[in-house]
Design a protein around this nucleic acid. Structure first.
Lengths: 335, 335
DNA sequence: ATCTATCGTCGAAGCGCTTCGACGATCCCA
DNA sequence: TGGGATCGTCGAAGCGCTTCGACGATAGAT
């Protein structure tokens, strides 16, 4: 492995000049630059990351903390991760993968040992124990999600409250008045993952504004959970004409169950989902849905980190506006 | 951030002694060790990763290359990734996440700049262009998958040929004689992902050994693909009593299609899947399946890397034996 | 009692890079 | 035509750690 000294010698310049060619932090004449670059290419020189980190206090590495729970949403998490890696690469950064179950100590380990310049944390909970720890680090961090008290943190996410409003507005426009929300499983609420509550709050508020008759119901995973959920909904809100489903995992069994009980979608009942585009498209009927734009959120997280890293100011909370795409699962209710 | 010098001063020893306490590479008296450890704890000292890498030529970081293609198998990939991260942590290593689409240059970048000690590469193709590049690196690497010519590489994977044999043996034992393989989509074969071919070869061979009447058919994704596939199978192998499905994505639509055409599983037709356990369990009927043990394979990959890193010898190709788990989708055919 | 290992610790020399200050050369404006 | 800016380059001082050789002290072998 050639070093910067080898390059310097080959190009007939000093090592510092090579460094300045590489970093562009000082002007270098065109001829010198060319000679240096030729030497670099010829020797196949790559700067040693550790040496660089030591001298410059910059690693060009981001930590990404993903939940490793293998329950719901695995594809979404993967989408976030690849979005983050791709975006990071465009800024010449690499990504160190951490799992959420290492908890606070994992964050502190990589931060204190200066392995990373900044952190991106997924699956943030309402009162996430990691947040105080993050605040103490010298490295900046961006949360994907929204804790109860975002003060002193930087957060990006989809605007789930607006997403809920959007689904109701769409259904109301189609003429629906009795609408039920099939929410995530109770464990998601219990865990305090804030998107569930934000969606719920947005749903309730928009329902009142639009003067709709609505109800909300969490939904346990699996067929029995879905069956119970639908039974409860029919009991509590008879004549319901539309469902808003904020539960990827329940989506498929729910459609199965509707079909099994002879209710056609969308003729007998409309369905609006909140899920990634490809999930909406992979269902027996392409579903009208509000997209969960993992790619955009991931990209935004990286952009925000980069802003922080070069000292630019950024707003504390940034929620992306939702987009509803009309497909085949939603129509005007029969009179 | 305190440095090793701060610790040394606080403990009244030299920096090298602190280093030896940390690494254990030289004997240190119990008292001294205690004083040093107390100082470390009190100051909250964490060694600087870059400095360490520079001085020791070890980063304690592994590169993991994942396919970022968002088509099939995303959950499986995620399972591999988390398995690798978890296993790496038990060996005090972290994981740098690379995407396959950076190709050869991504590998060379992280290797040449000494960001990682070793590489784990997923989604290996038959004549993977990255293999020659990997051979050139000074860092060792482990492939998850099996290229056409594994010479000079270290590979781990599930034994897909044995898995195919296992499915046929199980079905034959149940009394099935006419069996069709629903394979991955043609694009998977085209891409040269070797597990498809290995499964196919194992299937054909075992079929001959067991004296069965079988056929094989790739299956395009989506409902139409599945419908066509089933039509072809019925035409070519009338009276087929069992299907082996090596195509996660097709699994669900296939079951739907069978039901839609009035064929009950397992009463009218048996199904054995090759897929992760949780996929087999999430189907309308729990499927008899051969597990794809992502967790084990990922763990094995890390163990193998660690072996290589401390210079121990290891065999070139290691294929894990398959496990078939009997569930509810397979029974004795009606006479 | 002498010689040789071994133990426990220290000092110093790097590992490969960045960055600061310095310095001659060039340029522009008065 | 001289004075200060600016340009282009160099040298040297670290960044924080590991590791090698050295050395006194202790222990075991002869």
């Amino acid at each position: 492995m050639p070093t910067i000294n080898d390059v310097a010698r080959a190009a007939g310049v000093s090592p510092s000049t090579v460094s300045y060619v590489l970093s562009g932090r000082r002007p270098i004449s065109a001829q010198t630059r060319a000679r240096v670059q030729a030497a670099i290419a010829e020797l196949g020189f790559h700067p040693h990351a550790g040496a660089r980190a030591l001298a410059s206090s910059k690693t060009n590495v981001l930590a990404l903390v993903v939940p490793l729970r293998v329950d719901v949403n695995v594809p979404v998490i993967m989408q976030f991760a690849t979005a983050v890696v791709t975006a990071a690469r465009t800024h010449n950064h690499d990504v160190l993968l951490l799992t959420k179950d290492e908890g606070t100590s994992g964050l502190e380990r990589v931060a204190h040992s200066t392995m990373v310049d900044a952190l991106i944390v997924m699956d943030v909970e309402k009162d996430d124990v990691r947040i105080p720890a993050l605040r103490r680090l010298k490295q900046p961090s961006v949360l994907i999600g929204l804790p109860a008290d975002p003060a002193g943190t930087i957060c990006v996410d989809l605007d789930f409250a607006a997403a809920a409003a959007e689904t109701l507005r769409h259904l109301a426009w189609h003429g629906h008045r009795r609408i039920a929300l099939v929410g995530p499983s109770p464990s998601v609420y219990r865990r305090g993952t804030s998107y569930a509550e934000r969606f719920l709050a947005g749903f309730t508020e928009a329902s009142a504004e639009l003067g709709l008759e609505t109800m909300t119901h969490p939904c346990e995973p699996g067929r029995p959970g879905v069956r119970d959920c639908l039974t409860d909904i029919d009991a509590e809100l008879p004549g319901v004409t539309a469902l808003v489903v904020h539960n990827e995992e329940a989506l498929r069994p729910l459609l199965d169950q509707l079909r099994a009980t002879g209710r056609r979608v969308p003729e007998d009942i409309s369905v609006v989902a909140v899920c990634p585009r490809d999930v909406a498209l992979s269902m027996p009927i392409p579903l009208t849905s509000v997209d969960i734009p993992s790619h955009d959120v991931g990209g935004l997280a990286v952009e925000t980190v980069m802003k922080l890293l070069d000292g630019r100011h950024t707003e504390s909370v940034r929620l992306l506006p939702p987009t509803l795409v009309e497909r085949d699962s939603c129509t005007t209710p029969k009179p």
